[in-house]
Each structure stands twice: as structure tokens, then as C-alpha cells.
Design a protein around this nucleic acid. Sequence first.
DNA 1: GGAACTTACTAACACGTTTTAGTAACACGC
DNA 2: GCGTGTTACTAAAACGTGTTAGTAAGTTCC
Lengths: 342, 342
Amino acid sequence: MANKRITSQDVANLAGVSRTTVSLVLNEVKGIHISPETRQKVQDAAEQLGYIPNATAQALATRRTRAIGLVMTRSPHHIASDAFLPQIIGGLLDVIREHKLRLLIESVDENHRDRAYLDLVHAKHIDGMILLTPRMDDAALSKLEESDVPTVLMGKLNGTRLFSVDVNNRLAAKIAVDYLLDLGHTRIACISNAPDSYSASPERVLGYMDALEGAGIAVDEALIFYADFDPQSGFERTEALLQSGKTFTAIFVASDNVAMGVKAALRAAGRRVPEDISIVGFDDIPWAQYSDPPLTTVRLPAQELARTACMVLLDILQGVVPEQKMKILGTELVVRQSCRKL
Amino acid sequence: MANKRITSQDVANLAGVSRTTVSLVLNEVKGIHISPETRQKVQDAAEQLGYIPNATAQALATRRTRAIGLVMTRSPHHIASDAFLPQIIGGLLDVIREHKLRLLIESVDENHRDRAYLDLVHAKHIDGMILLTPRMDDAALSKLEESDVPTVLMGKLNGTRLFSVDVNNRLAAKIAVDYLLDLGHTRIACISNAPDSYSASPERVLGYMDALEGAGIAVDEALIFYADFDPQSGFERTEALLQSGKTFTAIFVASDNVAMGVKAALRAAGRRVPEDISIVGFDDIPWAQYSDPPLTTVRLPAQELARTACMVLLDILQGVVPEQKMKILGTELVVRQSCRKL
DNA sequence: GGAACTTACTAACACGTTTTAGTAACACGC
DNA sequence: GCGTGTTACTAAAACGTGTTAGTAAGTTCC
């Protein structure tokens, strides 16, 4: 049934006009005069033939692919257990669909990411990109900054020229730890979400420190651990924390995903939540409210972040320069049942 | 810094050859004779200029976009809480990167999906597609079947001509319920993962029935509920189940994601897992092993499914016809601590 | 009643590649 | 010295669109 592709030429022939006219009518180019009758003829012909413009040819002619890329630098293993990814993709798809764009997912591996970012855009696969969880030590990023590739970061990066969308990680963490302090906890451990080369991680630890200092409590470095995104790493850090022999009555875990592992490790060690140990998480992934006990956590508006990042990128692509370099979205402490009053 | 795009013409000029030769050399076209010196000259020139072929132009000329689409028919809300999506994307990216392809994510909304599938391919955005959780009542699918668009289904669809990759949902469900029977349970409820228009859902319910019938237990329709992918729906169905007044000692929940809500509802009603109620899940999402108690569930090899689907699609794209219409991957009952012996 | 403008279109080029059809030069067999 | 092959390349067509520059006809202005 190899039905030949229908081109704008076919439409032109059927309508009895030139290909140019077809293009002008179907793209609703303004500032140009086409008679209503001709317009109708073209539309009818296109309809009748079921004409679908070839996106590739359009992209070549306009030098716009109408696609944006979501670029991740994490390993396939980390991607697979990222509870946020669906929310982010959901948010992006929302905006993208409205604007008739497409979404390309790319993961750039550690080794040759220096070229990869730029290549993506140079090869004209995408018009611009959204960069997820950028690392501060990423040399490739500085190349990106120098070029004029439309880019929006999800996450903060100190001293970058790039546009970004984020939450105030430090303040949100402080509020979470303040909550534990208010409940009377004074020995509070901290397990951060990721290695400290990922900007959100040290920010959240700083917020943890801010809270302690605000309460006049000395920070004990031995109570601070850095996990690695997934529950397993939370499990391991918690084992280390328990074996350290340090006493503590609460843990601030800067990632719900990691907190899953933390809770499992506590359970394995016979410590109950919240009776023995209180836990505050971070992110409010969809499973946080269904865990046992329901996790008290900081709600990070993942979908909103994605939506906003996408809208900023679209602005840039249309030549509109956003008024602010960095957009900060609000967070909210969601109190559930994983903490108790001392 | 608007550094002009470098084209193959630039490379040709620098190397002192024609554009054709550049193309022949860089694409390593075989069956053609180019002297080693010329070959070197071209490669040097390309290297020196940092030449990156324009993917759009290549796509137009070759009529291959080197992109495949992951198409979902679920709503943005469901996408956001889909614990599988990251695994699937991870699996796809694995294969795709090896083959220097790209991955396009598309969600097709309920309303106008009749055209949407075909348009994607006709517009030449993608060479082929992987369809996630297809619905049996999807009229658009039959149009897809008639066309010769390279497509692979993740999930089973009765009587389809399309290639598909799946697990044996029915058998896997039977094994899960057999396990509960072996533990001595006889009053076993069933909460399926999704409405029964999604093929996996009725399959799993059938497996549940198979097990009961195999044990000589009559199926009680009042113990069977259909959830809607997310934890919330599991919560609600469980409330309904509890209010029905029916007695039961175990629940087979055909989705870990839904099981999260089921457990929360049981907890809210004061029923403990596994002391009062045993639960077997399905999927083995990354959080199943970290829930409290760790969830006994059927491991569904999500990444492998995605990888396999992708490889089948690539075969089709290269003109290789897979020997089997349907590839079935194995599942495995992962026994943890959410069930007790009666 | 001619210059200036507007309307309604179209011819032809541009986008950057792949690929087909060729060509020129040289070798080989007889 | 003439066909036949082979080697090493190139000119030009093709892919399907967007867009610029132009044209012919009709209208308005004074």
C-alpha cells in the first residue's frame, strides 16, 4: 500500500496555484494578500489529500527544528531510579504540546560530555536545551556559556551566565531542620541527596547548618553524610551513621528517594520511625505520602519547575530575554507523621 | 561570536576536493575507491574545522531521521507518577546511544489520538515508534496496523499484527497468587493495576482466577477491583474493599505503585501488613524493596523490556524481520516480607 | 493620464546533505 | 591500437520546504 508521500507540490497542483501560495496559506503568513477563494481552494486541497508537511524539510528551510532537548548527565542506573523524571517530563510535555514542539531526551555520559552539549545543538537536532542537575565541576558547561546556545538550567550553578530555574534549597533545608529543632531535637544528623559537586547538595547542607547555628547548636561534621541519589546509597550512609556510634534523635535527609533507603536501614537496625528517630525528607516524591509512616518532607514543585524552565527557554528562543537570570520557585514543608516531639 | 556554520562545502574547499568526496569519506561508504591520501586530507580538514554534519539535512537527503519515538497515551497526571517511566527511558537510552540514534518522547492525548500516531511518522519526525501501554479499545491502533509504520508495542494486544514485547502477565499473576495459596490463604482479594481496557490488567486478573481455580476455590467477583495506575486509586479501592464487609486475609495487587496506596489505606484502617493482611505486588519498582515491610512482588524486567523493544524496532528499521511477532520476557517472584503464613 | 501604490500571485533560490550518473586517466589483454 | 575494466574522483539532481525578489493587473491620486 506504499502510498507516495504527499508534498506541497501535490497540493499546489490540485488547487491550481503555485507551491509558494500553498506555503503562504497554510502557514498563515501575515502581511501578505491572498484572496479568500484561493485560500479556500488551498485548504480544501490540503484537506482532501491529507497533506502533512515534512518536518525535516521545514527544519532545514527555517533553520529551526522545533524540538528542545532534555539533557541529563546522570548514568543510566541513576536515571532508572529517579522519581522526579516522570514529573519533569510530564511538566515539559505540558508546555511543549501547547506550542507544537517536540521533546528530545538525551543522556550525556561522564566521559565525553565536553563536546556533547554543543554537538547536540550544532548538529541542529534541537533548538535549545534544558539541563538537568548540572554539576559544578563540569568543564563542558563553560564552553556552553561561551557559545550562544539557548540553555536553561534546572538547578543552581554559582556564577553562571546561563538562565536557570530552581528553588531556594538552602532556605528550604533550613525550614525543614527548624521544624525538627522546634520539636525539641538537638542531635540531628544530615544525609544529603548527592555528592557535593551537584549544587543542590551543598546548598541543602548549608541550610541544615544555618538552622543549627540559628539555634546555637554546634555543627558536628561527623553527623553529615553525602548520599548518591538512590535508596541504596541512603541505606549505606545510614549504616555508616549508626556504626559511627554518634547519638542522634533525628535525620534530615535531603532527598525522599534516599530517605527510602534510610528508613529501611533504620528498620533493619531495629530503630523505629518516628518513635526512636524522626525523619524529614526533601522533594515530596509521589510515594512520600504513602510510605509508612507518611513522610514529612519539603515539597519541591517538580512539575512547575519543569514547566517554568520550558517557558523560559521558549522565551529565549523567541528572542525575548527573561527579566531575571534566575527564577526561584517556592517550596513548602509538608508535615506528615515521620517526626515526633521530644 | 556568531561563528558561521561549517558545512561540508567548507571541508571540501579546505581539502581541495568536491563535496561528494567529503561525504563519501566521512560516511565511509564502501564499494567506492578513494585514495588513502585524499581520505586523510578530508579527515584532517574536517577535524581542523570542527565539522559537524547537519542532522536535518542528512535526514532530508536520506529520508531517515535516526530518531525513534516513545509514545504514551496516558494523561500528564499519570505520567508524573509512573514509577516505570525512568526505567524504560533508561533502557531505551542504553540501546539508542549505542546506535547513535535519538529518542523523542510524545504523549498523545485521548481526544485526537486517531490521527496522532500516524502524523508523527508521516511528518518524518521519527522513523519508528515504541508504543507504551496500548489500550485495547484504541481505534487509532488499527489504522497504525494498516499502515506500514515500524512499530513495537510494549504490552500485549490481542489479535494485533504489530510486533510486541511483553511478559506473561497471566502466568506471573498466577504464580504470585499461588504463593499466597501456598501460605494457606484462601480468601484473597485482587486489585488490578488499571482499567480493564489496558490489556495487562485483565490478564493479571485472569492469572489470579487461574490460581484460585487451580486450588479449587470459587472466584468471588466482589473481591476484584480495578485501580487506575496511581497510589491514590489503590487507596480508594482498598477503602471500598474494606467497606464491602467481605473477609479476606490477603490481597494480590497487580501494581506496586497501586500497592503503595493499598498499604496506606490498610494502615489507616488499623490493619497491619503482614500480620493482618498479606500483600503481593507486581512490577518490583525501585521502592518496593525499601517499603515497610519490604514488598513481596513479581519482578517485571522493565529495563530489559525497553531494551528489547528498542532492539526489535531497530531490526525492523534495518529491514530485518524478527522471527517472532511477540517476544516474552521472564518474570520472577521476589519474596520479601509482606506476606505471612496462615 | 501617468506616477505611485496595492493586490494577488509566482519563479527561482536557499537550506546542507546523499546519491546517481558520469568522466577522465590509466592498466590490461590480445 | 582497441575494447574492457578499474581507479579516483566530480557535476548535478534530489530530498521538501521557506522565502525573496519580482511581475502583472488593477486602483488611487492629483
